[in-house]
Design a protein around this nucleic acid. Sequence first.
DNA 1: GTTCTTGCAAACCCTTTGCACGTCT
DNA 2: AGACGTGCAAAGGGTTTGCAAGAAC
Lengths: 155, 155
Amino acid sequence: MSTELNIEKLKLQFAEYLKRKKYRNTQERYNVLDRIGELDRHFNADELYLYMNGRGDRISRATIYSTLDLLTQCGILMKHRFQGDSAHFELSSRMPDHDHLICMECGRIVEYREEGIDEIRDRVCDRLGFRPVTHSLQIFAVCHDPVTCEHNKQD
Amino acid sequence: MSTELNIEKLKLQFAEYLKRKKYRNTQERYNVLDRIGELDRHFNADELYLYMNGRGDRISRATIYSTLDLLTQCGILMKHRFQGDSAHFELSSRMPDHDHLICMECGRIVEYREEGIDEIRDRVCDRLGFRPVTHSLQIFAVCHDPVTCEHNKQD
DNA sequence: GTTCTTGCAAACCCTTTGCACGTCT
DNA sequence: AGACGTGCAAAGGGTTTGCAAGAAC
């Protein structure tokens, strides 16, 4: 829903970033952001590559990786390293300030927001002499109901 | 200090695990655990490989990876994926229930324990219908004092 | 003696890089 | 025109795997 609408704003934000850093406005870079908006979920570089080429865009992995890097640097994307091999990305604006629960049975990733995490983060940073930037609270858990769990693998 | 002493207990725990799973008691497996105890810090597979071969053990990377996997499965080791490429390991018993702060300037990893994280974890699991197993709260921050920070890179 | 584990090297996956061509400015 | 970005394929780093030799049972 709102994700679709936000993409235009994100493209403006991206354009500003490119301009500020003196990077060029290429069609590929904006295409990548468009397609990410269509996906509307966690993805890794190769999933995006396959999705884009599958739907007719002609884009290389090199460009995908390079653009994901730019989008992460300017804060539009969040880059996560969950258990597996590849890095996962998602739009920061999709669900701001959320964390992840990973089901140890089926690997499903559930997003949640919970009060109190920021306070803990700030307390720790204060105590150790750091300035907080961001955090990642990954909860590893198993479902109470195996049926719900097993059948809801993230696609 | 106490780490050294605990290694014998961990070896017993490892032996029990191997027996239960019908895996064999090999010298290499116990050697790996011994050397991890000596390291007494975060490490990745290759650091352990180099350390062991540097001090005279003859052991292959394949065995290192395989044994790290067993030690993780039986809970003796915790496996982390920080920002970089390789997985990091550490003894669970070295500092139970701690989390990590990663300095975004120099990559240093600071361990901390903070009240309230378990409560958040349990609250989230309760709400989402999961049984909590473990968690990992990574705080990304930058130091107030660049001097303190830059000069304390984790070796 | 049989089966599992090891060591080695090759294979593998994800990601980065070098180079020639194409595109933005 | 010049500089940067792209696509392709090859290289790179971390990890896994296939296979023959060796150790545990």
